[in-house]
């Protein structure tokens, strides 16, 4: 599998950021990604982040940790984050290694991830609405 040489694209879709990771990830690309994603979150009105790893065939402990850090950083900044498309073999391998990613939402695929983000947004809107009603 080819090495992801170029920067990983960060796609803005409505108020979400979508980061599709393809192929093997070199560490420096991962470090750049983290700073670019947080910059985009700060600069624009982002509500959700999806990191899609359906194109990744191997995740070792180091990359898994990077992935988790990316998702948790986004969440700390107030953005819901979802990792989507983990391949079955990769998921089984991570579990066997004891490398689950606690605290990070996951989804079967990109579509489900976006649904999850929308549900989270609706939930937030509703709780705001209720708060407003209570005040009235």
């Amino acid at each position: 599998m080819s090495i992801q040489e170029a920067r990983i694209p960060i796609i803005g879709l409505y108020s979400n950021l979508i980061v599709p990771i393809q192929g093997a990830i070199a560490d420096d690309v991962m470090a750049t990604l983290q700073s670019e994603v947080t910059q985009r979150i700060k600069d624009s009105d982002v509500k959700g982040l999806v990191v899609d790893v359906s194109g990744v065939d191997t995740l070792d402990s180091y990359l898994t940790r990077n992935l988790r850090d990316l998702a948790l950083t986004a969440r700390l900044m107030g953005v819901s984050a979802v990792v989507s498309g983990l391949r079955p073999a990769v998921a089984i391998t991570l579990v066997e290694m004891g490398l689950e990613i606690p605290g990070v939402h996951t989804a079967l695929n990109l579509e489900r991830a976006l649904e999850l983000l929308r549900a989270a947004e609706d939930e937030e809107a509703r709780s705001w609405g209720e708060a407003e009603t209570d005040r009235a």
């Binding site: 995740l59 070792d60 180091y62 391949r87 073999a89 391998t93």
Partner: peptide, 16 residues
């Protein structure tokens, strides 16, 4: 495929 993935992960882990 599953074992291929495990083996590749181990190689990646040790190399890293």
């Amino acid at each position: 495929l599953l074992d291929q993935t495990k083996i590749a992960t181990v190689a990646s882990e040790l190399a890293r």
